[in-house]
């Protein structure tokens, strides 16, 4: 049934509605599987001092899609995320072996400019972290440290970034106000706008909505759905419903190992591993 429908989109017999949706979803899944790879890790081990946090993680993250990293607390999903823009470099005593490729380029190779890497691979954190500056200065921060001084260019970047983060209409009249005066949900969207202002290809999100109320969470999720048209998004989430709602691919981590990686709908409906099934059905974690 599955293979048939993907080969010939019009089955001969009159199908039921359920069949049609399954068939179309499966076509979508196949397309999903064939996406180009944006970020890849090969045999990634990671250590905090003597404690190993990641064990041989090999994964291929497809481009212009949302990839969710799920798993119980302490499973290494945030650590994994932070290896992708070398954020773990700023923690003392960490060590890594294996390969991380962004568009085929080894980001841990000698001669890699970490500052340039972090502009290409942006990051949004769990806690919104607006700088104690104006809304404008927050968004303009990235371009400014990159050396942009032209006020007209900065204004342009700020406006387009705020628009892409769906915050422009709410703040366009008070760009000079302190960013700390914004609500929690607005602050998080401001942080997303600030990340977009450095024009990254990849946006890493570490539980971006976990501290927000349901309405703000919904806005962030809508935003992520919009953003994946232009960006490769990797998102860590505790919330499995959220992963199922917004992601195209899901990776399940457990005790520092990548247990299973696949197209989200498949992983949630037909998990290949017992541990994945146990986790997504709520038997642990």
């Amino acid at each position: 049934m599955v293979t048939e429908s993907t080969q010939s989109p019009e089955p001969p017999a009159l199908p039921s509605l359920a069949d049609i949706t399954t068939a179309f979803s499966d076509v979508a899944d196949v397309a999903e599987r064939e996406r180009a790879v944006k970020v890849e890790t090969i045999d990634l081990d990671f250590f905090y001092g003597d404690v190993q946090a990641l064990f041989g993680v090999s994964m291929q993250v497809p481009e212009q899609a949302v990839t969710a990293l799920i798993g119980p607390s302490g499973c290494g999903k945030s650590t994994y995320l932070r290896t992708l823009n070398r954020m773990n470099d700023i923690i003392e005593g960490t060590r890594l072996s294996g390969t991380v490729l962004v568009e085929g380029q080894d980001i841990y190779a000698g001669g890699i400019d970490v500052v340039a890497l972090r502009k290409r691979v942006g990051m949004v954190f769990q806690k919104s972290t607006p700088f104690p500056k104006s809304i404008f200065d927050n968004v303009a921060y990235g371009p400014r440290v990159a050396g942009e001084k032209n006020k007209a260019v900065l204004t342009e970047i700020v406006e387009s970034s705020l628009q892409r983060a769906a915050l422009w209409d709410e703040v366009k009249d008070r760009l000079d106000d302190s960013a700390l005066a914004l609500s929690g949900g607005q602050q998080q969207r401001l942080c997303i706008a600030r990340t977009l202002a450095t024009s990254p290809d990849v946006v890493l999100m570490d539980e971006p909505a976990s501290a927000l109320d349901p309405a703000s969470t919904a806005r962030i999720e809508d935003l992520i759905f919009e953003l994946k048209k232009n960006y490769t998004i990797i998102i860590v989430t505790h919330n499995m419903q959220q992963a199922a709602r917004i992601s195209d691919h899901t990776a399940f981590f457990f005790e520092g190992k990548l247990i299973e990686f696949g197209v989200t709908r498949e992983l949630f409906t037909r998990p290949g591993e017992q541990q994945t099934e146990d986790y997504i059905t709520g038997r642990f974690g």
Binding site: N85, K119, V145
Partner: peptide, 23 residues
Amino acid sequence: GLREAAYALGSTKLDVSLRVVLP
């Protein structure tokens, strides 16, 4: 978190110190 956010935006250590932490 402010330092991490600044690093994630492509700041050097000097940028982080003078443009984010000091203000």
